[in-house]
Structures are given as C-alpha cells and as structure tokens.
C-alpha cells in the first residue's frame, strides 16, 4: 500500500509544522540561538517506515527527540492519534511512552553498564504492565529476547552490557523498547555504530517488526542506501529544513531537490567508479547559530536564484506523493505586492 492510498486514520504520530530553536547562554549576555529544526512536518503511519535522511547537523535527531518529547517545541504541534501532545517542561508521562518508544544510536551508551539484561527488561515490563508473579514476568522477558533474536535467551539474561557484542546490545535496546508494546518506534541511526556484517540483521529485524506488529517507525539515517532498503517513504533534511520527501524509490531514483541529488551522488556506490574529475569544492552545511535566510542550501546550490536567498519555498507536490521545497519546482510569487 503506498502512502498516498492510505487514509489519514493510519497516522499514529505526526509532527505538524514543528520548529525548535535552542537558546544557549554563552555567559556575559552572549546568548545564541541554534535554529535546529525549522517548520518540519512528518507523519508516521501504522505498518510503515519513514526514513529521515540527512547529514550530521541537519536536525534529524532533534526532530526524533522532539517526537519523543525530550524538550518543548518552539512552535508547531505534535499529535498522537490526532490529539495534540502537551508536555510542560521536559519528557512526557508514562502513558505517552507506553505508545512511543525511542531507540538510540549508540547501544552501549543506551544501556546502564552496571545493570544486567534482566534489569533493563524487567524495569520496562514492570513500568507498563502488571504480572501475576515472577514466573510470568520471567516468561515475558525470555519471549522478548527471542523476538529480537537475542539468543540463547536463558544464558544471556544475566549478562551485562560489556559481555554482549554490539549487535546483541542493540537487540537488547530494541527488546527493551518493545517491552512496553509501543505503536511507534523512533529509531535514531540504530545501525551506524554497529559492525558492517550485523547491520543488515538489525535492519531485517526492524523490517520484520514493522510487518508483524504493524509498528509505525521512524528510521533516521545518513546512509541513503539503507533508507532505500528499509523504508516506505523518505524525507530529506538539510540544515534544519525538510527539502524533499515521498515514496522511497521515487525520491532516490528521481530526486528533484539539488541537495537530494548531491546526497545520492555522493553516497558510495560500487556500480559507478570514482573519478578524479569534478573534485571541486562541494561546500559545507551552514552554521545553525546563524543560518542563511531563505533556502539554507542556496549557498551550495548550483541553481540558486535570487529568490532562494530570501524566501523558503512552499511545498510543491510532484504527484504520487512525491514533494519538494524548491523554487525550481514552486510557483514564483507574483512580483506585485499586495496593496
């Protein structure tokens, strides 16, 4: 089922024109504002994986953490089942987290080094479910471990994080998130810290979870090839702005935004040889404490126009659910001003 056909009822969690600015006090009144996420819109649907692709500093992790209610929004709204979510200070209540879970990038960091596998799973289960006695709890823990292929479960349940391999640790992190029976899984670069040979295993696990448990999933990555492998739809972020999105094949095989093109061209692809030609300067992302006006990619864009420097384009629909924020595809505003 392509996302265009799916109805709005499938949407579990959505970010609606979300903006996040971090105020950082530099002492002596030299406060700076980091424009981390600007006007981002994102919908997570049951049984679908959305990949959020971008380089470091593109705001993809911030967006995921906003969805996990790590910090309050600057503007915009996050809705769960259509209901706006409001958190006062930081972090939501247990009720919210029983439906939305987050998987961290670094599985070693996400596990308390002093606590065993049993502790991690037991806390997650006990916080969100009630059990009739130890036996049932024990049974559930072993089941969870089996579900993520953390086997032999009976042997590993008393292990400590440092006794597990990288892949096993990430499986444990996933199992812990699954323990609460969430509807949404936010995965923040879940494979980037893992060894190459086990990355695919974890991707396959996430894929299976989507299909078998009908999970809505956000997959954050800088690796566009893995996004193609895992996701149904993809959104590309650059310097806090969402620049393009749509069905994964459509975006990757036929990118419309110059940044998406650059990103795909730059990704390693054994099918095409690397040549010394075109070793020109491709530029670097802007400083988010003082981002350029308009489209933030205009400094590096080979097609930059005057309007790109002043105004960020509205979303242009390209058909079949594919869209982009780019003046190359947007209708220019009339030169006459309203009067």
């Amino acid at each position: 089922m392509s996302p265009t056909q799916s109805s709005a009822a499938d949407v579990v969690l959505e970010a609606d024109h979300v903006t996040k600015h971090f105020e950082i006090s530099g002492g002596l009144g030299r406060d700076t504002t980091i424009h981390a996420v600007e006007d981002a819109t994102l919908q997570l649907r049951r049984g679908q994986i959305v990949a959020l692709v971008g380089e470091s500093g593109s705001g993809k992790t911030t967006l995921a953490r906003l969805l996990a209610q790590f910090y309050p929004l600057t503007s915009g709204q996050i809705r769960l089942d259509g209901e706006p979510v409001r958190t006062k200070h930081e972090f939501a209540d247990r009720e919210y987290y029983s439906r939305v879970q987050l998987i961290f990038q670094d599985p070693f960091g996400a596990l308390n080094p002093q606590k065993s596998v049993r502790h991690a799973l037991e806390r997650a289960l006990k916080l969100h479910h009630t059990f009739n006695g130890r036996e049932e709890l024990e049974q559930r823990m072993l089941e969870l471990m089996e579900r993520v292929n953390l086997t032999p479960a009976a042997d590993l349940i008393d292990a400590y994080p440092h006794q597990l391999s990288g892949g096993q640790r990430q499986r444990l992190v996933i199992a812990r998130a699954l323990a609460v029976d969430p509807e949404v899984l936010l995965a923040d670069e879940p494979i980037s810290m893992l060894d190459v040979s086990i990355r695919l295993d974890i991707l396959n696990l996430l894929r299976r979870l989507r299909d078998e448990e009908d999970l809505a999933m956000l997959y954050i990555t800088h690796d566009i090839a893995s996004a193609r492998y895992l996701a149904n739809t993809v959104q590309v972020m650059y310097a806090g702005q969402t620049v393009e999105g749509g069905p994964v094949e459509s975006v990757i095989q036929d990118p419309q935004h110059p940044y998406t093109k650059l990103l795909i061209d730059a990704s390693p692809d054994p099918e095409s040889a690397l040549s010394a030609e075109g070793s020109g300067d491709l530029g670097e992302p802007p400083n988010l404490a003082d981002p350029p006006a308009g489209c933030r990619f205009h400094l590096r864009c080979p097609f930059a126009m005057d309007i790109c420097k002043t105004e960020f384009p509205k979303r242009s629909e390209l058909g079949n659910g594919h869209w982009t924020h780019c003046w190359l595809h947007a209708e220019r505003p009339q030169p006459t001003t309203e009067s």
Binding site: A68, F70, F91, D93, R94, Y97, S98, Q101, L102, F104, D106, G109, A110, L111, N112, P113, K115, R123, A124, L127, H128, V173, R176, V180
Partner: peptide, 22 residues
C-alpha cells in the same frame, strides 16, 4: 544526560528510581 539515563526516562522510569538505581 547520558543515553542510558535518557533511555530510562523514555521508559517512564520514576524519578526516585532514576536517582537511586541508575
């Protein structure tokens, strides 16, 4: 602000447990 403490918060762990156990 270490990931493991954040992870326990995302599980909805109680404040006292966060301090005393984690």
């Amino acid at each position: 602000t270490r990931d493991f403490a954040l992870a326990m918060r995302v599980l909805g762990e109680t404040r006292s447990r966060l301090i005393f156990s984690e």
